[in-house]
Amino acid sequence: MYVILGGAYNGKRNYVEIMLQKRGNVAVHDIAGEIPDITAISEKDVVVISEFETIVQAMLAQPEETVAMEIVEQLCELNKHAQVICICTDMSRGVVPLEKEVRQMRDTCGRIYQKLCKEADTVIRVWYGLPQILKGEINHG
């Protein structure tokens, strides 16, 4: 599993697209704001998951740890079958949001990102288009 981490509008998706171009002919599922049904994905396909803010939206009544465990488990399961790339928009360095729901969303995403970074083989932070490898290495195979 790959995790691509970085602030909003920092060129994360563009970085993923360039990375995937180098891999050549591979089927890519671009999934924003949800976790796909595993049966819809063929083996060895690439699944790019983004917008964790939306993924957690319907689950914010539950404790953040429960939500995080559930989502990360699903993604790990998916990754056994396909290649998962998570685009994680870092929201952890701003002012504490005024709205309770946004605070809960931010905390839950943070918890998910921690777990994803632990599970991932490779973690890359993208800063205005430039990559920094925080963990593992980039495999273009």
Partner: peptide
């Protein structure tokens, strides 16, 4: 840019513009 997206359109526009401009300068 390391915070949740803004509920205010003007702030979100600003975030998008500064992110793209910073990317351009870095490139």
């Amino acid at each position: 840019l390391d915070e949740p997206s803004a509920s205010n359109d003007e702030v979100e526009l600003y975030r998008a513009l500064i992110g793209k401009l910073n990317q351009w300068i870095v490139a």
